[in-house]
Design a protein around this nucleic acid. Structure first.
Lengths: 153, 153
DNA sequence: CCTTGACCATGTAGTGACTACAAGGTTTTT
DNA sequence: AAAAACCTTGTAGTCACTACATGGTCAAGG
């Protein structure tokens, strides 16, 4: 299959597929006479595996390690267990800080009572005074730093 | 105050402070005779505001907009309300997908029964078959894509 | 006076996981 | 024959920093 057909089958953008190849995550396929990449079912399976791990929010480095373990079936599977546990702890930590975050934002939302100018805006007022006070997240806590939610079709 | 004293006061790294100045988030302060940046209390307040918003996981573009609204007190505060609501919806969405994620990982964790080779590893087996099946996250769902949790001291 | 160390300056490049071009070649469809 | 849809490579942009290289400035100690 060509790269476009692989997209059809997996929903992964060709640019992303080539990116995975560039960083050594997906093995380089053979080429047709015209230079087009020719993928087989093994590529399809591997790409699906990668996307599944990504859907579990694993960093590509972890996916790389899992793929390596898949390729070496005699290795110790304790590594897999450790990796999953570490990742789960990471996710749970982020979950907790996100929950604290949502609570803060919900409180904040109640502060703007639809007045007219930003000078009187309760939210802005809250933000300014909270930034100066001690009881706010940014004085001694940890906070999430996550850009965007991606859609995996 | 010098940039180092501003770090003392806010816990923000000088490199980050200069970065904020470079992208126009923090106004450029006056310079001493030797070229060192000289900050006043207004900078301290503004930087604390930025960090507080960041602790609420707002992207810098949103912080920029809030700072603009702060600088123009006669503007409509409905914009503030909208911004917070949009951001909260975003956070809540990410919270939900993270929860689904944690559940998946917890299930997965139970699949490795400490056997010896990765060929027999239940987790890897689960991951491979799930990637091929229909009932997994990556077939039609959305997944979080967030690198790391930052510490804001 | 000299050195050491801490501080400050600028500019550039790296991170992760893509995404978006630009500039060109190929194949299929109209 | 022309247009469209596809493929190739390479480079640069995203976000919010972070790290480094290279050099200037300043206060304390010997």
């Amino acid at each position: 299959m060509r790269i476009g057909e692989l997209r059809q089958a997996t929903g992964v953008d060709p640019e992303t597929i080539r990116y995975y190849e560039r960083i050594g995550l997906l093995p380089a396929p053979v080429r047709r006479a015209n230079g087009y990449r020719a993928y087989g079912p093994a590529h399809l399976e591997r790409l699906a595996f990668i996307r599944h791990c990504r859907a579990l929010d694993m960093p590509l480095a972890d996916v790389q390690r899992l793929l390596h373990l898949l390729d070496h079936p005699l290795d110790d599977c304790l590594d897999v267990d450790r990796l999953i546990n570490t990742h789960l702890a990471h996710v749970q930590g982020r979950l907790q800080s996100l929950q604290a975050l949502a609570r803060q934002l919900e409180q904040l939302r109640g502060c703007c009572h639809g007045r007219h100018t930003t000078a009187e805006c309760g939210i802005l007022h809250e933000l300014v005074t909270a930034a100066q006070g001690e009881g706010c997240v940014c004085h001694g806590g940890s906070a999430p730093n996550s850009p965007e939610v991606i859609e995996i079709s």
